[in-house]
Design a protein around this nucleic acid. Structure first.
Lengths: 191, 191, 191, 191
DNA sequence: GCTTAAACGAGACGGTACGTCACGTCTTCTA
DNA sequence: TAGAAGACGTGACGTACCGTCTCGTTTAAGC
């Protein structure tokens, strides 16, 4: 319940802090990322940051997975192509330097902070599965997918495999990997 | 590079510390787990612990994923049954109270400590994929699996999906989940 | 080089910490004095202490030999009385429970920390020899003291003998001791 | 109560350890002197050291102030010369590199260890005041010293002033200092 | 020559304190 | 009231040294 009185918040601070966070994540990793350092790099102060985000984890979460990142997945009219697009987006999305550095740390803090847990999963599924339900239903109607395949399972498969691959492979996830993974999942839910 | 000289390490300490770690993980979670508390509960001292493990993360990793946990997966002679057994083991294994509490934290520290990264992945793949290569080749020979399906892909699918499900679902992973997931993966690598 | 920005240091902490230090010194001695215990007793924290003093020794030094303890020695107009007053003060000063407990330990740390060395000597000579030079010159002018007697020698004699007596005698230094010592030193620098 | 059985103690160890202690004291000072380092430098082990000395302080005490160091002070037949000899010896004795490094530390541990307290004072007075009583009586008989001057006072003066000078001056105590100090003390106890 | 027992080196042990770090909050002054 | 600055309490970190103990090995004296 913000009041209309008093000095308004400096609108540039949000952007500067998010940018500084992304930069520092790329340079030093999540563990060595201190709020003091972010504040310094953003040219602002710790209280200004905590006025906007309730914890370091929430800040990082928003910096790495910005709102409005996701658009509706293009409807290709074919299940295999749809799945491939999903895997593609998932991989592209998690292999940003900042995401690579931040994700494990965020996951680590999820268990301690239910708020973050919820926020992170929502953001995730928003990005990954926007409009997925209808598309899957259509595929089932076309006879391409099994009727018992759920959107949840599909997201679980795409996100889980991508995340694990991220932890395992030192390298980026190339097109060959995307192809193989998309094939596996597509067949997994096909009739 | 152990010497034969000097007082030998007290053989009871390793066990007591690992047990204390598992207990405390169940009680308090990874973030609130202090080495002092472990030492106290195990009836030993912080230096004695740091003589054996190079960091808290290494200790937890060994406590939660004990060596020799894994045995060869039973060869059922059928790919679907083999995959189901894998998923079953993977789920059973990660839903221990200690594992649930520790895994996110460990993953978080992996990025900061390459040593831990290696150790964790080795432990993981040892437990999950012991003898998997041969089994997959046999399945290919029987015409049950696609020739281009690799053991790595399989492990990635099983471990990734399980891990992600663990983060997502608050509850345990029941038989129905195991069935659905095993089906998805089996079809995914089938001919 | 104090800034005018930021939250100012809580002015009560310095006093509370110094008082707690003196109390604990009386109770437990220098060796068993921990910074944690001081912080607890003073109702503050270790970092707050280390913000103000660079080491335990510096803190103890300031607690035991507070600034402003010394006032100008009363000018009695007679060398014997002046010297007796000095010895008196020196003895009173070093036989405080806190001083008895702390001095040997501080002396022990002087060799390791040049900063402390300087600080301790300055504090000492400030307390003992404030205004001593003029008094000695006057005594020389009156023919009571030898012209070659220096203030340094006088301080060395008073402080050294007192300190050594403190180490040697278990008991306090009584008036008889003060008399004997003052006599020795007075004669020592007399014509 | 040592038995005659068993392997006899290696006679070279005592010497090697004392020598190593003196060397290390000169190099690193008392605070940075660890028993491990002494053992290593002496080519022996910690238990072998603790078999011979009950603590680090006792070892250092014996290393720095070896028994049999003192001989009877030469009887010059004149109080001034006797006192000068005493001051001379006291200064020579405490300005060894090892003594300079060790003394403050030892004094610091005296308060915590009564055994050491006694041992140190005995060693000190043995070295400084061997045969002093008779000499002082003779001086009194000759009318050179006041009848109420005690040997204790004399030792206190010599040792105290020297010790304090040691702490204060960075430099060695030269002949001029010895002269001035001897004069002060001699007059102090003269008729 | 065999036995015995203590000394030996190496190094692990419990204990305890050290000084440092980052968190998220709070308090001052200034704009 | 927001902002920068920076101190606050909390609580854990990993390290260091103490003096003791436990190994397996060596060394002499006594039988």
């Amino acid at each position: 319940m913000t009041t209309d009185f008093g000095r308004p918040r400096d609108p540039r601070i949000v952007g500067a802090v998010l940018a500084a966070t992304v930069e520092l994540l790329g340079e030093t990793g999540y563990a060595d990322l201190s709020v003091d350092a972010i504040a310094k790099k953003a040219g602002t102060s710790k209280p200004a940051i905590y006025r906007r985000w309730s914890s370091k984890a929430h800040l990082v979460h928003e910096a790495v997975f910005p709102l409005g990142e996701a658009t509706e997945l293009p409807d290709t009219g074919s299940l295999p192509r749809d799945v491939r697009a999903m895997v593609q987006r998932s991989a592209a999305f998690l292999t940003t330097p900042a995401a690579r550095a931040a994700l494990p740390g965020l996951v680590g803090e999820m268990s301690a902070d239910p708020t973050l847990h919820v926020a992170l999963l929502e953001r995730f599924s928003d990005i990954l599965s926007r409009g997925l339900g209808e598309r899957l239903e259509a595929a089932v109607a076309r006879g391409e997918a099994r009727p018992d395949a759920t959107a949840t399972d599909l997201v679980e498969a795409v996100a889980g495999i991508t995340f694990f691959a991220l932890l395992t492979h030192g390298t980026a996830l190339d097109d060959a990997w995307v192809d193989r993974t998309a094939t596996l999942i597509t067949r997994g839910i096909s009739t």
